[in-house]
Amino acid sequence: MTAIEIRDLAKSFGSVKAVDGVSFTVEAGSVTGYLGPNGAGKTTTLRCLLGLVTPDSGEALVDGRRYVTLPQPVTEVGAVLEATSFHPGRTALDHLRILCAAAGLPDERASESLAMVGLADVADKRVGGFSLGMRQRLALSSALLGRPKIFILDEPANGLDPAGIEWLRGFLRHLAHDQGAAVLVSSHVLAEVEQTVDNVVIIAKGRLVRQGSLAELTTNGDSAIRIRASDAATLAPALEAAGAAVERVEDGLLRVRGMDATSVGQIALDQRVVLTEVTQERSDLQKVFLELTGER
């Protein structure tokens, strides 16, 4: 099911085209990483999606509707935008209770949501004394208040320590894979999301440069399969005969291009050659990212 749909979205601030004809979708039960360097237009896209910024043209829909038309938005979409959006003199619990009142949710949700992000101990502390990581958790707990099925998070890993990032990864995977939520998470640091996301949308200078699954992105055209075989001398000509490009790396080790692992295995079986290693060589995602976004 398509949870989020961005279609030909465009938004300019003055003469700067922040978002320029971006389209992509996010499906339920998956984590989609929205990646791009700082200033690429990620935040503007998300704010258009959430009705905070009015796009110049195009559409940004959640569950097929514009966010501003949702009767009870927080029960459908949980959003985390900046970590700084709290009144420093207000306690964490009071902050959430205000949102509960505005959304018509029972007040118990406030303490429940704080417990879900591990902030129950500091519920009655003023937010002014919180670390950046605690603020991120508080922001996440506010997104959980309405128990939504769609999550939109803008740079949620900013300011988190390594343990916090690890926690966030697990939490996002849990939301998507165990609870079937659609999660759209933006980041300018690929490493933060690499182990979490199923799909990737890459944007640079307001334009979409790549969309696909993480596997598709990393196994692009020139990726190879490393094969260690008992009888490489027999296998190599057979693979070449089937159309693959074979590079003899060393004795018993081949690099095969232009053929998938299944076909390689089938040919090996036909030739009665034992394969002792089959490794899909992944191209370095960081390299791909930098190439695609023109940062290199």
Partner: peptide, 8 residues
């Protein structure tokens, strides 16, 4: 931001 997210 949170105010308008809750009440667009």
């Amino acid at each position: 931001t949170g105010t308008f997210l809750t009440t667009p």
